[in-house]
Design a protein around this nucleic acid. Structure first.
Length: 258
DNA sequence: ATGGCACCCGGAGGGTGA
């Protein structure tokens, strides 16, 4: 079972790339972030035609998450239980093939001095609590993928000395990610690859792609209990070289059948 | 060096991303 996650930076702008990648890779499940579209305008038909069921949590202009699946989708929840009606659409969870699968788009944080940076930290803390609550209540192994907007380690950034203490590589962000993993999850990519400079995002501007100046900020975290089933994981950097790319690329994990 | 680029909305150019 192949599960992938991709911040597409607008599903409408990325529909050609998305369908090209889906047709080539045929993942069982694809988690999307930054769909940037209302539910009414989500291009469902292009995905249904390819055999994917779709559940979405969208909003106008920004944010927006979705889950695409070739298997039946059940028990969908959007956001955190305590969210008000105006909450940004950054989290969707569903039960698929005996797993609790989630797509998450963690707030960027903008700048460490900006109030939204504290909201990012709070959001990551809430996410940890939500994962524990879901594990207890749904009782299925959890796979959460998404754009976490945090590089975990120095080997996950092109210039750690430049980013240290800044947004995306601040100790408080790393602490929140580590606390989340310590709750019983593993960074699937790092089970199979120790190499530095394997990134999931490159800036649109300047020579970022040519010089491999990127960040690894997109992850698939899987329940520790899934370790024996986890056979391979990777980052597919190729779509970053296609026409009209997202600035993020898909990350993926393969799980053996239970 | 606050630029670079791409997306959004709205119908110009500012807000946001990372």
């Amino acid at each position: 079972m192949k599960i992938a996650s991709w911040n597409v930076n607008s599903i409408r702008a990325r529909l050609a790339s998305l369908t090209r990648w889906l047709d080539a890779q045929r993942p069982d499940v694809l988690l999307l972030q930054e769909t940037k579209v209302t539910d009414d305008d989500f291009p469902r038909d292009d995905l249904l035609r390819r055999g994917y069921s779709v559940v979405i949590a969208g909003q106008k202009s920004s944010n927006g998450v979705a889950i695409l699946s070739q298997h039946p989708i059940r028990d969908v929840t959007v956001g955190f239980p305590e969210d008000g009606p105006g909450a940004e659409k950054r989290l969707i969870a569903a039960s698929i093939a005996g797993l609790r699968i989630m797509s998450a788009y963690i707030p960027n944080g903008r700048d460490v001095a900006h109030p939204v940076f504290q909201q990012k930290l709070a959001w990551l803390s809430r996410l940890r609590g939500f994962l524990l609550e879901q594990r207890a209540s749904v009782r299925l192994p959890i796979v959460i993928g998404g754009d976490f907007n945090v590089a975990r380690e120095a080997r996950d950034l092109w210039a750690p000395e430049l980013f240290e203490g800044q947004v995306h590589f601040h100790p408080e962000e790393r602490n929140r990610i580590n606390a989340l993993l310590n709750a019983g999850f593993m960074d699937s990519f790092r089970q199979f690859c120790d190499a530095p400079a394997r990134y999931s995002w490159w800036d649109y501007r300047g020579p970022s792609v040519a010089k491999n100046r990127g960040l690894r900020i997109d992850y698939l975290f899987v329940d520790d209990s899934l370790a024996p089933r986890c056979t391979l994981a990777g980052i597919d950097a190729e779509p970053r070289l296609w026409e009209k790319p997202s600035d993020h690329v898909p990350v993926w994990v393969e799980l053996d059948s239970a």
